[in-house]
Structures are given as structure tokens and as C-alpha cells.
Amino acid sequence: MLRNTIPWLIAACAGSVIIAAYFVPSAQGWQDTIGQWFEVLASFAFVLGGVNLAMQNLQKISAREPGWGYAAVTLMSFLVTLGVGLFKVGVPADSSGSRWGGSYQAEGSAFWWLYEYAYNPTISTIFALLAFYVASAAFRAFRWKNTEATLLLATAFIVLLGRTYAGAVLTSAIPEEYSAFTFPGLTTLIMGVVNTAGQRAIMIGIALGVAATSLKVLLGINRSYLGSGDG
């Protein structure tokens, strides 16, 4: 009951209120209330994630597991960032002489410094690494094997050229009235017609899947999100 039925009832009530609010304007207030609660829980989820990470790294350090030194770096970075963010270290003071009224991300604050010079460069460089791996994958995995692979390859060729100046230069001899056959023209056709058709079919399929899953959750047919263990 407490572990299974009540959670399902909570899920069903929350979802049903939102669906009801779509059709019954007077239920709008309830939808807003649920939205507020949801946002508080989303904030708690950030706390949960952070504390969980700290505990895991602390365990690694105390057990002297391989790589515990990096766990210590993670933990230190976490604690320093958390401390300066929660206590608004370096935030310019307001008229009352207190820093608490200012933004926690005010330019020049310690939290701002960590965002600009530690978080921003590391996360953007990690994503930038993918440029190299995509090049390697293009060399090793993109093979002209059958009709399907050829279509994929040819499309990639056309769009890669069509999305740069090279495409326009290579097909510049084609007269304006046949511009649809230039690389940029073909790219527009592929994106606006074939890609649209393919993406639309995928979208329709996903929409039906999401609707079915949502209904299963609300009706209690799917309770897999509750897990199976006793916890």
C-alpha cells in the first residue's frame, strides 16, 4: 500500500489534474500549484545529485580505491564551489552593506570566477573533443556498402558541401533558374522535404509512444519507475 498503491495514486492525481486543467479552466490554479511543487522537487533533485556525488567520492577516498586522488579533487572542487556559491563570497554589497541582496553570480564574485574559468572551459572543451572523434569516425566507419549506406553517404556529402561556401563555388556554373540543383539548393531540398518527412514520421511515432506510456503511468499499468526493491 505505502510502497506501491499510494505512489501510483499520487502520480495519477498529479497527472489527472494537469490533464483536467487543459479542458477545465477553473482547474488552472491547481495546475499552477502542482507546477510550483514540481519546481521545488526539481531543486531538491539538484541537492540530491550533489550530495550523492560528494558521498560517493568520500567513500572512494576513505576506501583508498584506485583513482582516489581524483575523487579528492572532485570533492574539493565541489565543496569550494558550493561554499562560495551558497555564501555569496565576493558578491558586491548592496545599499545595506550586505552581500546577501546581490546575485550569487554577480560579475567578479568567486562563484562567477569558478563558472567563467573552471566550469565554462572544461565543459565546452569536452564537447569540442567530439570534433576530432567525428573526423576519426568519418574515416573509419562511413563505408559505401549498399544502397542505404550510399544514400546516407551521398546525403552527408551534399549537406556538408551545401552548408559552406565550397558548395556554392563548386556549382556556381549552374544558372540561377536551376539553382535547386546546386549544392545549397539540394541541401535546402533535402532538409525541407526528405528530412522533414523522415523527422515527421519519427516524431509521430514518438508522440504515440509518449502518449501510451503516459497513459500507462496514470492508469497504474506501468509502475516500473517505482523500482522493484524494498529500498
Partner: peptide, 20 residues
């Protein structure tokens, strides 16, 4: 930033051709 894009796209095309 479109100039680096151009040369990197050409490189990718060349790599696909070379790989094949």
C-alpha cells in the same frame, strides 16, 4: 567562424573518401 567550418567540412569529405 564559417572559414574553419569550410576547411573542416572539406577535411571530413576527404576522410570519408580516403576511408572508402
Amino acid at each position: 567562424r564559417m572559414a574553419p567550418q569550410l576547411w573542416a567540412h572539406l577535411l571530413i569529405i576527404a576522410l570519408i573518401v580516403l576511408g572508402n
